[in-house]
């Protein structure tokens, strides 16, 4: 029974994946991709990876979906691209890609039942940080450098996206302007939901220490709230030249880096936390990251400044 549920889920995911790449219209394939993401979320739950499930739903399906849907909408009238491989070539590529998939499948079936060295080690080392959520321990302590670099990747992507602004629009507010909508269900929703969203984000950050959740998942919810408010025309993003906005964006990475380097003095190694205050320090860093990541994610979806005239 359970196995069939999983098999059905897996087949559904593959069917949606096929639809996402084989459909001609970008809009349709994006919709298929979003649903694929939701199916995958359930798959992650089945695999016992609740933190990943939250991230997949929020980022893999949600934010990526929003980004791609917006782009599909804007590029809809773009002329079709011509560099399409010929049918025999596509068949050749299909066979080769199927070969890759089959090879990877064989690897999956051959996976050994390895000794869970890392899982045991991670559980026994968790006391040093005071966090009970093993995934968060890995992200914030054991592999902190990965997390820092990942935040810098987000930051670099934002710098890159902003750098794509037309010269005339540089320094102005990012993205297109959504005119203030007439009072309606959307504006009501955009007024009611954000306070709840902020509470949920804070909750995810707080429980993330000991249960699935964490700064990143919370940040995604905050980012969604920002985007909702913008979509309803209730508020606009500050101009990219705003010093406050820029400080907000670098606050998280800078705090993490600063604490990491302070670890040399306080705990004897870079990115080490003094044992007595590890949990408190991690929560402070996570809070800074929550704010920065939320702003960065939302701004990445909004895009570069493109309004040549200052907003009225």
């Amino acid at each position: 029974m359970t196995a069939w549920f999983d098999v059905g889920l897996a087949l559904m995911a593959l069917g949606l994946a096929w639809r996402a790449i084989a459909t001609r219209r970008a809009f349709d394939s994006t919709v298929a991709f979003v649903i694929y993401g939701l199916v995958l979320t359930i798959a992650w739950v089945r695999l016992g990876a609740y933190d990943v499930a939250l991230t997949e739903a929020a980022v893999g399906s949600g934010l990526t979906g929003a980004l791609l849907l917006g782009a599909a909408h804007r590029l809809e009238r773009a002329p079709a691209d011509e560099d399409r491989p010929s049918a025999p070539l596509r068949a050749l590529l299909a066979v080769a890609c199927a070969g890759v998939a089959l090879g990877l499948g064989a690897v999956v079936l051959a996976l050994p039942q390895v000794e869970p060295l890392q899982a045991v080690a991670a559980a026994s080392a968790a006391e040093a940080t005071g966090l009970l959520n093993p995934v968060n321990n890995v992200l914030m302590a054991f592999r902190a450098i990965d997390t820092v670099l990942e935040k810098m990747v987000l930051f670099a992507a934002l710098v890159g996206v902003w750098s794509l602004a037309p010269d005339a629009a540089w320094g102005r507010r990012p993205g297109r302007r959504f005119p203030p909508a007439a009072e309606g269900p959307l504006t009501l929703f955009a007024r009611v939901l954000p306070p709840v969203g902020v509470l949920i984000a804070a909750h995810l950050l707080w429980v993330g220490a000991d249960a699935p959740g964490g700064a990143f998942q919370g940040a995604t919810i905050l980012a969604a709230m920002i985007l909702l408010v913008r979509l309803a025309g209730l508020a606009d993003a500050p101009p990219v030249s705003s010093r406050a906005l820029r400080l907000l964006i670098v606050l998280g990475p800078a705090a993490f880096l600063g604490v990491g380097m302070a670890g040399v003095v306080l705990a004897g190694a870079p990115f080490a936390y003094p044992a007595a205050h590890a949990k408190a320090i991690i929560l402070v860093v996570e809070f800074a990251m929550l704010v920065s990541v939320a702003a960065t994610l939302a701004l990445l979806v909004v895009g570069p400044p493109e309004r040549a005239q200052a907003a009225p």
Binding site: L47, A49, D51, T55, T64, A119, V138, V153, L300
Partner: peptide, 24 residues
């Protein structure tokens, strides 16, 4: 103990990197 948390953390990192790539 549940599944090995290290790959989970790496997947979360990877998902974020993929999102950044998509946005760019």
């Amino acid at each position: 103990l549940g599944p090995d948390p290290v790959p989970h953390a790496m997947v979360i990192t990877g998902l974020v990197v993929s999102f950044a790539a998509t946005a760019l």
